[in-house]
Amino acid sequence: MAGTPLVMLPGLLNTRRLFEHQIAGLSDIADCIVPELWHHDTMAALAGAALAAAPRRFALAGFSMGGYVAFEILRQAPERVERLALLDTQAVPDTPEATKRRQGLLEQTKIGRFHGVRPSLLRQIVHRSHLRDTAITQPIVDMAREVGAEGFVRQQTAIMGRPDSRPLLVDIRVPTLVIVGREDRATPPPQSQKMAADIATSRLVVVEECGHMSPLEKPDDVTAALRGWLTP
């Protein structure tokens, strides 16, 4: 029997490798599709490309920036989404301070100073207990290298231009899973708690001893939560 079509949307400087554990662990119940999200510089275009690669109806899981793309998919084609999972993401737009930081990174990148993911950034996105675990940190570095400077510029441009997705939340009616690392500093748990509170059909899972990169940091926990969401 064919599995549930599951479109999985990676985050900033991420590739399919982010979800390797989930793809393998859910292979008996899900047929996973992971679009490359670094070829366009608007959320509308990224969502359109993901929809073009997806079947008519599918479950949708978005991590971090992938969550922003998931919200745009809900704007463009809500009738195609059967289930929704939001991992370490947020519905709010950037603050002016966050936009300024992103613009600074883009300026550095455009003059050739793109260095991928450095140790200083890893400390911001990975739980302190995982910083010496190369099974977690090396994929993050490798994925950033694969996306590269041009992909990074396009992704950051799309992120800065994204709309406020909070008005969408109250209209979501499909089974929804919200996952967040307990010590996620990039998209802190209060943001996930607010999203879950506004989505009537949601369930919130807080992953302990975990930073922002939950699919890599706590793969068993994330895969188990997704399995329960896909097979309620």
Rank of each mutant, 00 (worst) to 15 (best):
G3D: 04
T4I: 15
G11S: 11
G11F: 08
T15W: 04
R17Q: 15
F19Q: 03
F19V: 11
F19H: 04
H21P: 03
H21T: 15
I23M: 10
A24S: 13
A24T: 15
L26S: 09
L26W: 12
S27N: 09
D28R: 04
D28H: 07
A30I: 01
C32M: 15
I33P: 15
E36C: 12
D41M: 01
T42K: 00
A45V: 05
L46A: 07
L46N: 09
A47E: 03
A47L: 11
A49G: 13
A49K: 05
A49E: 13
A50W: 09
L51S: 08
A52R: 15
A54Q: 11
A54W: 10
R56G: 05
A59S: 13
G62R: 11
M65D: 14
M65Y: 14
G67F: 05
A70M: 11
R75P: 14
Q76S: 06
P78A: 14
P78I: 02
R80A: 15
V81G: 14
E82R: 15
T89R: 03
Q90F: 08
T95S: 14
A98Q: 13
K100M: 14
K100D: 06
K100A: 05
R102N: 01
G104M: 07
L105T: 01
Q108A: 04
T109A: 13
I111D: 10
G112S: 11
G112T: 00
R113Y: 05
R113P: 03
F114K: 01
G116M: 09
V117M: 07
S120V: 01
S120A: 09
S120M: 04
L121W: 00
L122G: 00
H127N: 08
R128A: 06
H130F: 01
R132G: 06
I136T: 04
P139I: 05
V141T: 04
D142F: 00
M143D: 02
A144T: 01
A144N: 02
F152A: 02
V153W: 03
V153F: 07
R154Y: 07
I159H: 02
R162F: 08
P163D: 06
P163N: 06
D164P: 06
P167R: 13
R173G: 14
P175R: 01
L177W: 15
V178F: 07
V180G: 04
V180L: 03
E183S: 15
E183C: 09
D184F: 06
P188F: 05
P189E: 13
P190S: 02
K194V: 13
D198K: 09
T201R: 12
S202D: 14
S202G: 14
V206A: 10
V207D: 01
V207G: 08
E209I: 01
C210Q: 03
G211S: 14
H212G: 02
M213N: 09
E217M: 07
P219V: 03
D221F: 06
D221T: 15
V222L: 08
A224K: 12
A224Q: 15
A224I: 09
L226C: 09
L226Q: 09
R227T: 01
R227Q: 08
G228L: 12
W229L: 06
